[in-house]
Amino acid sequence: MKKNSSLSILLKGIIKENPVFVLILGTCPTLAVTNNVAGAFGMGIAALAVLVCSNVLISLLRKIIPESVRIPCYIVIIAGFVTIVEMIVHAYFPALYDMLGVYLALITVNCIILGRAEMFAGKNSVGKSALDGIGMGLGFTLALVLMSTIREVLGNASFAGIAIPFLEPYKIEFLVKAPGGMLVYGCLIALVYVITSGKAPLKKSFSCAGCPNAATCQTACTASAQPTEEQKGDAQ
């Protein structure tokens, strides 16, 4: 497969550069909305819509937006699309709107969207950016659905609201609460590392590299991201 073929751009977001498990972007919604499958799926689709729209528009405008003010411009574009999606969800899917609450508005500050704008859409053609948006959005949705399935089935003995009676006596209730989210997420990151036998570019530790703000806050990042002993060992 050619490195830049359309198919590989589409597919890399789903597995190789999965935004949640490999790039570690958008941790907040990942943890917050995955206690039930329906909410996680809705969140994924909402983020997908915003991601594709903002990627396309930013790619169209990439030669017009001045380099120095690009981040504020991206934020305005993204916030605009988030508002549109928020209104659509409010009008047509009120149950989902109540379920997601403030997290829907917080798609604005989801690192995935700003991150893809900065890393991909700002540098590539419209078609490629749209594909990248679809791929990343699907990767995000799949990751959320996977995580919420584990949490809801094991924690609440149900799937997308449908009860699974035989699991009822064995449910581990804390998985649907806040700590369970972090536990499942941590285990899944380790699992992805094992499955890809260490080939996935696993982040040695949480650094600012994937953060779109990295450029604007070099000082803070270098201060916090000094290599530890562990990382030095890994590099060898």
Binding site: F174, G180, L183, G186, C187, A190, S205
Partner: peptide, 22 residues
């Protein structure tokens, strides 16, 4: 263990603090 190094173990530790806060 190797696969847990870095972010994975950090998240699991955060999970325990969160459990304490519950």
């Amino acid at each position: 263990p190797r696969p847990f190094k870095g972010l994975a173990v950090t998240l699991i530790a955060a999970s325990f603090i969160s459990l304490a806060f519950m």
